[in-house]
C-alpha cells in the first residue's frame, strides 16, 4: 500500500477537523474536532512507523494520546465551569476576553 494513500487520508481528516473548528459554534463540538485533528496526526505517525520499521513514532502516538486525555479532562472542566456561569456553551457568548 503506497504511503501517499495514508498521507491523503490524514490530510483529509485534519482538514475536516479544521472546517469543523471554523464552522461550528458549540464549544464541545470544537473540542471534538480538535480530537479529530490529533487522531489524523496519530494515523500518519503510525503509517510512517510501519514504513520505516521504527517503534519510536508509536511511542510518540502513545504520548499524544496521554496529552489528549489530560487536555480533555481540563478542557471539559473549563467548559462545565463556563456553562455554570453563563448557561451556554456558545462561543459567541464566551467572548469576554475581547472586551
Amino acid at each position: 500500500m503506497p504511503i501517499q494513500y495514508y498521507i491523503f487520508l490524514s490530510i483529509a481528516l485534519f482538514c475536516i477537523g479544521i472546517m469543523g473548528t471554523l464552522m461550528r459554534r458549540n464549544a464541545i463540538i470544537i473540542f471534538m474536532c480538535i480530537e479529530l485533528m490529533l487522531n489524523a496526526v496519530n494515523l500518519l505517525l503510525v503509517a510512517f512507523s510501519k514504513m520505516f520499521n521504527d517503534p519510536s513514532s508509536q511511542i510518540f502516538v502513545f504520548f499524544i494520546m496521554v496529552v489528549a486525555a489530560a487536555e480533555v479532562a481540563v478542557g471539559l472542566a473549563i467548559i462545565v465551569m463556563m456553562y455554570r456561569k453563563v448557561h451556554s456553551v456558545d462561543i459567541n457568548i464566551l467572548n469576554r476576553l475581547k472586551h
Binding site: M1, P2, I3, Q4, Y6, I7, A47, S49, K50, M51, F52, N53, D54, P55, Q58, I59, F62
Partner: peptide, 19 residues
Amino acid sequence: RTHGTLEREATDIGLIKNL
C-alpha cells in the same frame, strides 16, 4: 519524495513487548 510503500507482511514492532 514520498514514494515509500508499506510492506504487507507482519512486523512485530507494534507488539507490546517491543513497544
